[in-house]
Amino acid sequence: MNAWRTPGIWVALLVILAIGLMPIVLKSDATREVVFTVLLSVALASSLNIILGYTGYVSFGHIVFFGLGGYVGLYALNVVGLPLWMAISAGGLAAGLLAFLLGKAILRLRGAYFALATIGINEAMRAFVINFPAFGGAIGISLNFRIYREYGGATSALWLTYYLMVAFTLLAVALSYAIKTSKFGLGLIAIRENEDAAEVMGVVTPNAKTWAYVLSAIIPGMVGVLFYFKNGNIEPGDAFRLHFSIELLVMVMLGGFGTVVGPILGAAGYQRLRGILLTTPVLKDIQLVVAGVLLLLIILFIPSGAVGWLRHRFPKLRQVLP
């Protein structure tokens, strides 16, 4: 496919790979932790961008897929005793299935109604899991320590999850690009720009939207397993934290809604900013205030995000910056 001859996407993938290799070269656990968080954000923001940025549906409670994936994964590891790769697949499958079932119903709603419904689903899921004994109710699931031993002990298990995280991030970005440059992606963007016009031109909107939702849910489900495997335990308040969901939206907005590179820059930039705010003594107590003010300034004055702004300013970039 000639879409893959564009240098922009390869630069993006290589940069991610280079950042991903950094902790391995430095053999630094601290760097690994920082980079893990950034990569996780990149993978989640890029996935969210498929339904949010390409299709134009504001999935406000997108974290539900991450949380559900985590729960299914830990359950598979701990209770069923499946190996990690199968747990990851199960997490992705569960998230995709949930998106498929929900998609047919809630993607009929437009605008803020859809956003509200996704919030409702996330909250309902959290409340349900608290009452679901198999998932440990309000306490959640703690990974049996002995499972790490099957992966060479805690340290090497941490490195293993890290390698996998790098791989999934690359996969998420590649998937996002593949969708954006495909016929399917063109249909999604048509829906975003004018759903009625898209229908009249023959885009089978209910199916396209549902698949976009499913594709944007699978990777969050899989990295949910990774994250909570690494974390060692999962609890309802953490797994379905609406705040994290909104942070993902902010990352996509920050970098540039509907572009491939935008969520990467947005996620990295947001986490970097958070790091600075949390480690600067003057700002530490008011980090939320500073972040809020910055977010507001961006929404008010650069609503298309960094990449969107660049593409608008320099139309030539549209060719090279996916």
Partner: peptide, 25 residues
């Protein structure tokens, strides 16, 4: 952002949320 797509006003009010919670905390 009153004329902008819903995402803008949602995030604008959310940023106000962050500021109030931050100051309040």
């Amino acid at each position: 952002v009153i004329e902008a797509p819903h995402l803008s006003s949602l995030l604008a009010t959310f940023s106000v949320n962050m500021v109030i919670i931050g100051l309040g905390t």
